[in-house]
């Protein structure tokens, strides 16, 4: 334990270490799960979104819609802030109930205030972050989310998000050189973050599949060390480091 870490690997090592510690220091009682589409079983720890979390979603509106579809199907309201290009028809076909969907396409500079106001009443809010968000504002909002049991899905810069989902690569099927039509897509979704999201996991998903649903492409889920489902133990971690 006394040997100093190699300088090259130290920053990433320290980050990882801190993430582990934060994960184990989660002192609050187990928060409730928000029903999520079964396709995220391998992607998210425990297979669901937890109330009071902030999740960064990068690079795909379909991925965002897939995350919204589960809560919407279970009767929750969802709100989308600052995304004027959000495709309503796609949202409907992917299983988001339009009766319980609220759009705020142009919140302008007040977007953070709007998100905070919506988070009070709407359990799942998706927002596009514009400009830099001060860490103090972000933590105030996450405190509010924890209190209200809401989930915030953010695209764009967000300091201190609990998890980060992104699309690493995407491959469309059905379209050839001058013939066919788009039918389904295979994407590699990477998940990372802090706490229980500590490990980076990659999953192959079909977003969307041929039946306009979401499906896991195959069982091969790769993680860089061990399965994310396994509980983390401190001594387990320290062995390779010493």
């Amino acid at each position: 334990m006394t040997a100093p870490l190699a300088p090259a690997e130290s920053p990433s090592r320290v980050d990882e270490l801190q993430a582990r510690i934060r994960g184990m220091q989660a002192t609050r009682l187990d928060s409730k799960a928000v029903p999520t589409h079964p396709v995220f079983e391998q992607v998210l720890p425990g297979g669901t979104l937890r109330e009071g979390t902030v999740v960064s979603v990068e690079g795909s509106t379909t991925l965002l819609m897939a995350l919204l579809a589960g809560p919407s199907a279970s009767g929750r309201w969802v709100a989308v802030v600052g995304m004027p290009d959000f495709g309503v028809e796609a949202a409907d076909r992917f299983g988001i109930d339009l009766e319980r969907l609220v759009l705020v396409p142009d919140p302008g500079r007040q977007w953070l205030t709007v998100v905070a106001a919506l988070a009070d009443v709407i359990p799942v809010v998706a927002a596009r972050a514009v400009g830099r968000v001060a860490p103090a504002e972000a933590s105030r909002l996450s405190a509010r989310l924890r209190q209200r049991g809401g989930v915030l899905l953010v695209t764009g810069e967000w300091p201190g998000s609990d998890a980060r989902l992104g699309v690493e690569s995407s491959r469309w099927h059905g379209l050839g050189a001058g013939h066919g039509q788009l039918s389904d897509r295979e994407v590699v979704v990477s998940a990372g973050g802090r706490g229980e999201f500590g490990r980076r996991a990659r999953s192959r998903l079909r977003l969307p599949d041929r039946a306009l649903g979401f499906r896991v492409a195959d069982a091969a889920t790769t993680t860089d060390a061990r399965s994310s489902r396994e509980p983390v133990r401190l001594d387990d971690y320290e062995r390779p480091a010493s």
């Binding site: 705020v104 302008g108 709007v114």
Partner: peptide, 12 residues
């Protein structure tokens, strides 16, 4: 905050 048109619901 945003005006009447600021918050919309969608249908197809």
């Amino acid at each position: 905050m945003l005006g009447h048109d600021g918050v919309v619901t969608a249908s197809i």
